[in-house]
Simulated assay, not measured.
Amino acid sequence: MSRTNRLQDLIRVLRHHPGPIGGPELAAALDVSLRHLYQDIAVLRAVGVEVVNEPGRGYVLPPEVRLPPAALAEPAPADGPAALVFYTNPLSRGGIVHWMLEELGATYRMVTLEYGAAMKAPEYLAINPLGKVPAIRHGETVVTEAAAICAYLADAFPEAGLAPPPAARGDYYRWLFLAAGPLESAIALNDLGVAPTPEQAMRLGCGDYWTLVDTLAEAVAGRPYIAGDAFSAADVYVGSHIGWGMQFGTLPRRPEFEAYWAGLRERPAHRRCEAHIEQVLAR
């Protein structure tokens, strides 16, 4: 069954059921799994159909809720603009993906989730079982983890030119995933005051914090971009970590980092993301 038919059936059952209906009962009525049900409810909410979950009672579609045409339309192809939904919180790593989306110039719908109940609701756990943001839904594809999302989007929208040609992706993959793995782990350990001994560092995938700092500084020294002669998704991810790291004191303000970040932070796409955060904080 297509998603269009699933959404139509879901709305029909909710509209005609006398009162709230529990998730298992609703899934059984639709002949879908609970996971598919939660994902479809998340899709409806993403396009503006507010399906209400009454605690202890179940789901209900309030009679005053209007159904936008997009809720019943056939989803766009996997690379179509209407198919891209971005789940985030402005004060999260979702900012990395937001910047990436703005660099792409893609059309997307942003769904902002508050920390706490909204991220742990079954509808969102069907998107990301960890209950964390960011995540994206692109057509039928769900991707979580900021680095993975950046890499995926660069490939899904090749016209944006945010990934090098496959034969030239050595540095691109190397630094993108070094920042996502060893760098994040080392920063977290250092920020928590954990100083592994040399023997312990050998057992850690991240190794030694200061060795990582030196390695990353050398990688960006005298270079506007980290993976070749053009800006890429690796710069979005690595640049975000360097910018945030210096801002919050988890990375030292080394001249190499300052120069590299100065060349990225004024990009129009990044400035739009900063303006969005400023608006949110002002509210």
Rank of each mutant, 00 (worst) to 15 (best):
L61G: 02
P75H: 05
G80M: 01
A83K: 09
T4A: 06
K120Q: 14
L281Y: 09
D155C: 02
S2G: 04
G249N: 03
N53V: 07
I21D: 05
Y38R: 07
C273K: 07
Y108F: 15
V49Y: 12
L101V: 08
T141K: 10
Q39L: 10
P196L: 01
A282Y: 07
P196A: 00
R271T: 14
R267K: 10
V194F: 09
R66L: 05
Y87P: 14
L37P: 03
I149K: 14
L176R: 03
L37M: 02
P164L: 01
L37G: 01
W175Y: 07
V213M: 01
Q279R: 15
A71W: 09
G22R: 14
R57I: 06
R45M: 09
V142P: 15
I21P: 06
L113G: 14
R283T: 13
M246F: 06
L212M: 04
Y38T: 03
N53I: 07
E266I: 05
W99T: 11
Q200S: 03
C150R: 15
L72N: 10
V32A: 00
G116I: 12
V111L: 09
A135K: 12
G48F: 02
N53C: 14
S92K: 15
R35P: 01
P158R: 05
G22N: 11
M100L: 07
T250I: 02
V60F: 11
V236E: 01
I41P: 13
